[in-house]
Write a protein that binds this DNA or RNA. Structure first.
Lengths: 157, 157
DNA sequence: ATCCGACTGGTCAATCTGTGCAGCGGGGGT
DNA sequence: ACCCCCGCTGCACAGATTGACCAGTCGGAT
């Protein structure tokens, strides 16, 4: 998929004011409503826009501590470990990677003390050989997509 | 902040069907429309729901490669490094952490070859002493929040 | 020259939103 | 035991938005 400048502007607009409607968006972008509708449909069926899920802040839910854990897995235990971690709510995402570890996961916890519980929960599983954890102190760049969208839109013309 | 079961059900519903309106949501949850409106307002002003940004898939934008880089920073260069990385669109998020590295960032690239360019861009900066990169192969658990929301809602009663 | 896809600008009925209202009930404080 | 307050309900209203159409225009490709 490629996106053009109008797609880019639309996505940025949606990101900045998510509650905006199709009509208002068309006014802002200076195009007809039908165009915005068509673009949004296309972006969604292309999979560029997966959806408009609510952006929930774990900290506000009582989970202010974030950490990343690098896991080393016993050969052939990958599927079991995936299933195990998938069942732990505090595991927000899980990746299998190249490099020193075999997996990388993002964890949240209610406190530093609670993080110990979560780590025990995660690591206390047979297929996991070793784990090393990095606690997040600051988040200078929160998960963002706009700069990339803008670059992708530029590259198209 | 704490959330109750109704908040939890509302968030889950919004996550599953983001385009749903207040009226339809109230029907599904079996409560009055005003209640849903009040809950949504509260969740948003509490910061539990940050917004409803479009969920953009970098892969669909032409950036199918994801990697995590652990960076070691020269003493006192933190602010400069943050600013530098903030200016790179391919840096989707950045954290400062405890542990072996000093920072952890998520990168995307157009290809494995392109990843080299991105890494050079990221690392080619004076304040960065060393970097180690892990390329993501699979993503068994994509970023999710629902299980945590459900747990938080349970814990409340 | 012609076709085609994309965009425009307009209409239509149906629906949803924001807002305000009075009534009701339980939990908590006095 | 009593009363107050807050949250929820059910309802109403005007105004705005949506999804679905349509014919006309435009530029690029064949």
């Amino acid at each position: 998929m490629t996106i053009d400048r109008l797609d880019g502007r639309l996505i940025v607009l949606l990101a900045r004011e998510p509650r905006i409607g199709v009509l208002e968006a068309s006014r802002r972008l200076g195009v007809a409503r039908g165009t915005v509708q068509a673009r949004m449909d296309r972006l969604q069926s292309n999979g560029v826009i997966r959806g408009f899920g609510p952006d929930v802040d774990p900290a506000a839910l009582g989970y202010p501590v974030t950490a990343f854990a690098t896991l080393e897995i016993k050969q052939g235990q990958g599927a079991d470990v995936r299933a195990h971690l998938g069942g732990v709510p505090e595991v927000l995402e899980l990746h299998t990677t190249t490099g020193h570890g075999d997996m990388l996961c993002r964890l949240v916890a209610r406190s530093n003390a609670d993080l110990q519980r979560v780590i025990d929960l995660v690591v206390g599983f047979d297929g996991i050989v070793r784990a090393s954890t990095a606690i997040v102190m600051e988040n200078p760049v929160p998960l963002r997509i706009i700069p990339l969208v803008e670059q992708a839109a530029e590259d198209t013309d």
